[in-house]
Amino acid sequence: TKIIYHMDEEETPYLVKLPVAPERVTLADFKNVLSNRPVHAYKFFFKSMDQDFGVVKEEIFDDNAKLPCFNGRVVSWL
């Protein structure tokens, strides 16, 4: 699974690849690859589809939650 993530106000996003199927990747999986960053200091928002509003940034805080996936990749903002 490819996860593209944006940090603070930085213009260029980062990319990490996880050896987990897109439909199975969790917030804990993502946090594990960010071990060099203080993950407890961040809120995690993900590109998600809402039936009422369309594409939104959804906050996910449960480490066991599966991450929303679009075209085989996850897009996140920290």
Score class of each variant (00 low, 15 high):
Glu9Gln: 07
Ala21Leu: 06
Ser76Cys: 12
Ile60Asn: 00
Val74Arg: 04
Glu23His: 12
Leu15Gly: 06
Thr1Gly: 00
Glu58Cys: 09
Phe70Cys: 10
Glu9Cys: 11
Asp62Glu: 09
Glu9Ser: 11
Lys66Ile: 11
Val16Pro: 01
Leu15Cys: 14
Leu27Ser: 03
Thr12Met: 13
Val20Thr: 08
Asn32Ser: 11
Ile3Asn: 05
His40Trp: 10
Val20Trp: 03
Val25Ser: 01
Glu10Met: 08
Phe46Arg: 05
Val55Phe: 13
Phe44Asp: 02
Pro19Ala: 10
Glu9Leu: 09
Glu59Ser: 03
His6Ser: 05
Glu11Asn: 13
Phe45Trp: 11
Lys17Ile: 11
Glu58Asp: 10
Val16Asp: 02
Ala28Trp: 06
Ser48Lys: 15
Pro38Val: 12
Ala21His: 09
Thr26Asn: 00
Val16Ile: 14
Thr12Pro: 06
His40Ile: 06
Leu67Ser: 01
Phe70Val: 12
Pro68Met: 07
Asp63Cys: 09
Met7Arg: 01
Trp77Thr: 03
Arg37Tyr: 12
Ser76Gln: 00
Tyr5Pro: 00
Glu59Arg: 12
Lys57Cys: 15
Asp62Tyr: 06
Ala28Val: 05
His40Leu: 08
Tyr5Asp: 03
Val33Cys: 13
Ala65Met: 07
Ser76Trp: 01
Ala21Glu: 11
Asp52Pro: 12
Asn71Gln: 11
Ala28Thr: 04
Leu18Cys: 13
Ala41Trp: 06
Lys47Gln: 13
Phe53Thr: 15
Ile60Tyr: 04
Leu34Ala: 00
Pro13Phe: 09
Asp29Arg: 00
Phe53Gln: 15
Val56Trp: 10
Arg24Phe: 07
Tyr5Met: 05
Lys2Leu: 14
Pro22Lys: 06
Leu67Asp: 01
Asn32Val: 08
Met7Gly: 02
Ala28Arg: 13
Ala28Cys: 07
Asp50Met: 07
Glu11Asp: 13
Val25Gln: 02
Val75Arg: 05
Phe44Val: 01
Gly54Lys: 15
Val33Leu: 09
Lys43Cys: 05
Leu78Phe: 09
Tyr42Gln: 06
Glu23Met: 07
Glu11Ile: 05
Arg37Asn: 05
Leu18Phe: 01
Glu58Ser: 12
Cys69Gly: 05
Val55Ala: 12
Ala65Ile: 01
Trp77Glu: 04
Ala21Met: 06
Asp50Cys: 11
Asp62Thr: 05
Gln51Ile: 09
Val74Tyr: 13
Phe45Cys: 01
Glu23Lys: 00
Arg73Ile: 13
His6Val: 06
Thr12Lys: 15
Asn36Cys: 10
Val25Trp: 00
Val39Phe: 11
Gln51Asn: 14
Pro19Lys: 08
Pro22Gly: 04
Leu27Phe: 02
Leu27Arg: 00
Pro19Tyr: 09
Leu15Ser: 14
Arg24Trp: 07
His40Asn: 07
Trp77Ile: 05
Glu23Asn: 13
Glu59Thr: 00
Ile60Lys: 01
Val75Ala: 05
Lys43Val: 03
Leu67Asn: 02
Pro19Trp: 08
Thr1Phe: 01
Thr26His: 00
Val20Asn: 02
Glu10Pro: 02
Asn32Pro: 00
Lys57Phe: 15
Ala41Leu: 09
Glu23Arg: 06
Gly54Asp: 13
Phe70Gly: 05
Asp63Glu: 14
Val74Ile: 07
Phe30Ala: 01
Glu9Phe: 08
Asn71Asp: 08
Leu67Trp: 03
Val33Ser: 14
Asn71Glu: 14
Cys69His: 08
Arg37Cys: 11
Asp50His: 15
Lys2Ile: 15
Lys66Glu: 06
Phe44His: 01
Thr12Glu: 14
Val16Phe: 01
Leu27Pro: 02
His6Leu: 07
Phe45Val: 05
Val39Lys: 06
Asn36Ser: 11
Asp50Val: 10
Asn36Met: 10
Phe30His: 02
Asp29Gly: 01
Val75Phe: 10
Ser48Cys: 12
Asn64Glu: 13
Arg37Phe: 13
Glu58Arg: 15
Gly72Tyr: 02
Thr26Ser: 05
Tyr5Ala: 01
Tyr14Thr: 11
Phe46Asp: 03
Phe46Gly: 02
Pro68Lys: 01
Asn64Gln: 09
Pro22Leu: 03
Ala28Lys: 11
Tyr14Cys: 12
Asn64Tyr: 07
Phe53Arg: 15
Pro19Leu: 07
Val75Met: 11
Tyr5Trp: 05
Ile4Arg: 04
Ser35Phe: 12
Lys17Ser: 14
Glu23Thr: 08
Ala41Thr: 10
Asn36Trp: 08
Gly54Phe: 05
Phe46Pro: 00
Glu23Ala: 08
Met49Ile: 06
Ala28Leu: 10
His40Lys: 11
Phe44Ser: 01
Met7Ala: 08
Pro19Phe: 04
Gly54Ala: 15
Val39Ala: 08
Asp52Gln: 13
Val20Leu: 10
Ile4His: 05
Arg24Glu: 14
Glu10Gln: 09
Pro38Phe: 15
Ile4Cys: 06
Lys17Phe: 11
Gly72His: 04
Glu58Ile: 14
Thr26Tyr: 03
Val56Gly: 13
Glu23Val: 02
Pro38Thr: 12
Ser35Trp: 10
Arg73Ala: 13
Pro22Tyr: 03
Asp29Tyr: 13
Gly54Trp: 02
Tyr14Glu: 08
Asn36Val: 11
Lys43Ile: 03
Glu9Val: 03
Val56Met: 15
Asn71Val: 04
Ile4Pro: 00
Leu27Lys: 01
Leu67Arg: 03
Lys2Arg: 10
Lys57Ile: 12
